[in-house]
Amino acid sequence: MSAILCPYCEAENIEGTDECQACGKSLMELSRRIPATSVEADLLRDRIERLWPKSPSKVAPTTPVGDVLKRMVDERIGCVMVVDGDKLVGIFSERDALMKLNTDAPKFLTRPISQFMTTSPVTLETNDKIAFALHKMNLGGYRHIPILFHGKLAGVISIRDILRYLAERVVAKKHH
């Protein structure tokens, strides 16, 4: 276990202690880890609203698969939100199309999308940190995450939004 010295009275304290055990002054600033790079600091500071989540394309669970596919092509989007009234019940993405429909697509065009959607998708709130989105996308291999505002579907962010956000930062810091 490492120790930190109180800058006020020089007493030894256990690392991570909030206040000096000898003089009672705050040691919070000492134990806060300083991010190694500015990109890393941005990820921890900026919130998802900073990515300007797009308003999501929504379909009802009963919508036929064929209609959903056409909409994804026409609107040039990678996924649609499946909503039952106000409630998000699933998400259907290009990946779902490849994995679940594939060359059998013609057989399934009239079936409801609810049979092929991914149920209970991972969601985040607009005020969550961008680092969370990166984490969830990496963990689950997702390219889209529905974004809620006070529990209600407000938007969607894609891995492309994150890429754009990162690109702005690596361009600014070319030698990083």
Binding site: A131, N138, L163
Partner: peptide
């Protein structure tokens, strides 16, 4: 692109993990 995300998570482990 998922490879890029994975690379970043690996390089900012303290931030992300």
């Amino acid at each position: 692109v998922s490879g890029i995300v994975h690379y970043l998570v690996d390089h900012f482990p303290e931030t992300v993990y």
